[in-house]
Design a protein around this nucleic acid. Structure first.
Length: 152
DNA sequence: GCCAACGTTGGC
DNA sequence: GCCAACGTTGGC
């Protein structure tokens, strides 16, 4: 099973939304960056994902979610009413992908970004690299385990 | 294909 | 609100 990290503004979709929708599925759509899209396309059912809160009061990893449906064409790209509408994408060759996620668990405490930055072994994680804007990224097994040591 | 201008992300 | 870093756009 691969491991991943996704960023989201909690005002849009955060751990609270997953907790409220517990045992329900939340579509992860609206990713409009090619590098992030390429990683999204590699997600498989059963993969686990860190949910990271960005651009908010408490920045950091808030919980763990799981892929329940691997990549499929993001419907919002075809919806003119959607802010994620992409007029240049065509149904016979969709440009953007989405996955479905569900809650595994909320972490007992949010692991703040500054702790991740100071953690030896995470140097290669795009999240902690200055200026990185990647919103979907792979996490190695080592990085995953090291990060989880910071919880609780 | 180059690159300047512009828009967005996201921490601080 | 600021601004650095980065991605995208579009003229040439």
């Amino acid at each position: 099973m691969a491991k991943w990290l996704v960023k989201s503004e909690p005002s849009e979709c955060g751990i609270d939304d997953f907790v409220e929708a517990s045992s329900t599925v939340i579509p992860w759509d609206g990713v409009r960056n090619y590098q992030a899209r390429n990683y999204l396309a590699q997600m498989r059912e059963g993969d686990e994902v860190f949910l990271y809160h960005s651009s908010c009061q408490a920045i950091g990893i808030a919980g763990i979610v799981r892929v329940v449906r691997g990549a499929y064409p993001d419907p919002s790209q075809f919806d003119p009413e959607s802010p994620y509408f992409d007029a240049k994408s065509h149904r016979d060759k969709p440009r953007w992908q989405a996955v479905d996620l569900t809650l595994v668990r909320q972490l007992p405490r949010l692991i703040p970004l500054h702790e991740l930055k100071g953690l030896p072994g995470l140097e290669n994680l795009p999240l902690v690299r200055k200026g990185s804007r990647l919103s979907v990224m792979p996490v190695t097994e080592d990085e995953w385990q090291l990060t989880l040591r910071l919880e609780g």
